[in-house]
């Protein structure tokens, strides 16, 4: 699961999908995850990185990550 290569996230959290012309706003933690995805990290690794940095339990994080990835998928932002 990887972010499409030409998808760019700006410093202030604006995301533009040049293939579809859609724009999005992401919150800071989402931006962080998108950058990890771009680096090609797998989900487990990303979860671990987030767990290390943020006050959150694994169950909540996994639920939220799944939802977030679903949204990325829904908006055609991921390479399959």
């Amino acid at each position: 699961m990887k972010l499409k290569r030409n998808v760019a996230v700006s410093e202030n959290g604006f995301l533009f999908n040049p293939e579809t012309g859609d724009s999005f706003i992401v919150n800071p933690i989402a931006k962080e995850i998108l950058n990890y995805l771009k680096e090609g990290y797998d989900i487990e690794k990303i979860n671990q990185l987030i767990l290390d940095r943020y006050e959150v339990d694994l169950v909540t994080l996994e639920k939220n990550m799944e939802d977030f990835l679903k949204m990325l998928q829904h908006n055609e932002l991921l390479d399959r």
Binding site: L15, D22, S23, F24, I25, V26, N27, I29, A30, I33, I50, D52, R53, Y54, E55, V56, T60, L61, N64, M65, D67, F68, M71, L72, N75, L77
Partner: peptide, 12 residues
């Protein structure tokens, strides 16, 4: 650790 919030993606 930092305060956590759910990652979100809002379409403009």
């Amino acid at each position: 650790k930092l305060d956590y919030e759910r990652p979100i993606l809002n379409k403009v």
